[in-house]
Amino acid sequence: MPRGRPSRATVYLRLENGIAELNDRLGGLPSPKEAEFIWSDIWHLEAHHSTALEGNTLVLREVEALLEQGRAVGAKPLKEYLEVQGYGSAARWVYRQALEPGDWHGGELLTVFEVRQVHARAMAPVWEVAPHPEATDREAPGMFREHDIHPFDDGMKPPAWPLVPAMVTGWVESVNGIAERLRSRTGSTPWPERLAALHQGFEQIHPFIDGNGRTGRLLLNLILVRLGYPPVIILKRERPRYLNALQRADTGDYGPLGELLARAMYDNLNRFVVPNVAGPARLVPLAALVDKEFSLAALRQAAQRGRLDAVHGPDGVWRSTRKAVQEYKRNKGKRV
């Protein structure tokens, strides 16, 4: 374990305590209307990092301009802008569905319709200019694959395509079957590892000809937010750890993936809880200090340039105080 990195058990305990604090102090996860700037920042970061895990090269400021203003800043291939645009649209739909489902929804944790809808929304824009070269008309966004998938590098082979519809239905039933245990966070297996098993199960089925990674992470967040927990963002720098954890999960070892998901959940938990409980002089992660005026990227840039009084911890996280941010706001634009 890297020096200064808390153990898996510690991460699980911190997450458990953080969720309890979220419920005690805020009555649960605030809606996008109640915490618009926090949800917006998560939206940008998720669209950036989740597409970057698949090879997209847009940087965060390009993602923010595209999602907020519809502007294609930079000179990247059109395919990359449409990948981010599709993911951003799907993520917004996921948050809305999770917190304010339509009248047609019957109260389940997840439905097969939602699985297909998430894939369709995420992949439709890019499909218009760069469809999968082997896809037929019956394998368009939102439609299950009718091709077999070659075994992955680690040897895991997704099921034959005729089995996919029944296996997706079975997977959704398994999600709904453990819904109550996930809500109450009970059972002998740590609940982040139950989530890890669900995530790995979807990726192993690989129900679509393309876009399974993005769809799987979006569905995971739909489940989490519907349960009242923060969504997860797997950072692009965590890609090797994430892929290794998925490979370990293929063998039945869900610990590494459960830990990675728990750490990501805890990071976003701090965005919701810490701004509401931190005193003006308490040192907290920059993510907890985001507001309508400054995104996380803007605060990090100010810290790196020395304009915001902040410290860079041994865990790689920048931290500052609410008081320091207020001081930065007062002095922003002045010659230092």
Score class of each variant (00 low, 15 high):
residue 13 L to P: 00
residue 90 A to H: 01
residue 308 L to I: 09
residue 219 L to T: 04
residue 157 K to F: 01
residue 94 V to T: 08
residue 17 N to T: 14
residue 310 A to L: 11
residue 88 G to S: 08
residue 98 A to M: 04
residue 254 Y to V: 00
residue 44 H to M: 12
residue 325 V to I: 12
residue 234 I to R: 08
residue 168 V to E: 04
residue 234 I to Y: 02
residue 133 P to D: 00
residue 138 R to W: 12
residue 149 I to V: 14
residue 243 L to G: 07
residue 256 P to K: 00
residue 180 E to M: 11
residue 216 G to M: 06
residue 310 A to H: 13
residue 142 G to I: 12
residue 191 W to L: 05
residue 28 G to Q: 05
residue 226 R to D: 14
residue 231 P to I: 11
residue 103 D to C: 03
residue 44 H to E: 02
residue 56 N to R: 06
residue 63 V to F: 03
residue 151 P to Q: 01
residue 196 A to I: 05
residue 127 W to I: 06
residue 237 R to G: 11
residue 131 P to N: 06
residue 138 R to I: 04
residue 308 L to M: 05
residue 257 L to G: 03
residue 67 L to M: 06
residue 42 I to V: 15
residue 223 I to Q: 12
residue 9 A to T: 11
residue 252 G to R: 03
residue 285 P to I: 05
residue 267 D to S: 13
residue 277 V to F: 05
residue 301 Q to V: 13
residue 32 P to F: 07
residue 315 D to M: 05
residue 177 G to S: 04
residue 173 E to L: 10
residue 329 K to E: 12
residue 41 D to C: 11
residue 310 A to R: 09
residue 22 L to Q: 03
residue 267 D to H: 11
residue 21 E to H: 04
residue 177 G to A: 02
residue 286 L to H: 08
residue 265 M to I: 00
residue 334 K to E: 09
residue 267 D to K: 11
residue 9 A to D: 14
residue 230 P to C: 07
residue 333 G to L: 06
residue 43 W to H: 15
residue 60 L to Q: 13
residue 327 E to A: 15
residue 211 G to A: 04
residue 277 V to K: 08
residue 12 Y to S: 11
residue 195 L to C: 04
residue 183 R to P: 05
residue 37 F to P: 00
residue 101 P to K: 03
residue 236 K to F: 02
residue 41 D to M: 10
residue 328 Y to R: 01
residue 157 K to M: 11
residue 1 M to P: 14
residue 185 R to L: 06
residue 303 A to C: 07
residue 190 P to H: 12
residue 296 L to T: 02
residue 16 E to H: 13
residue 255 G to R: 13
residue 217 R to A: 06
residue 195 L to Y: 06
residue 89 S to Q: 14
residue 53 L to Y: 02
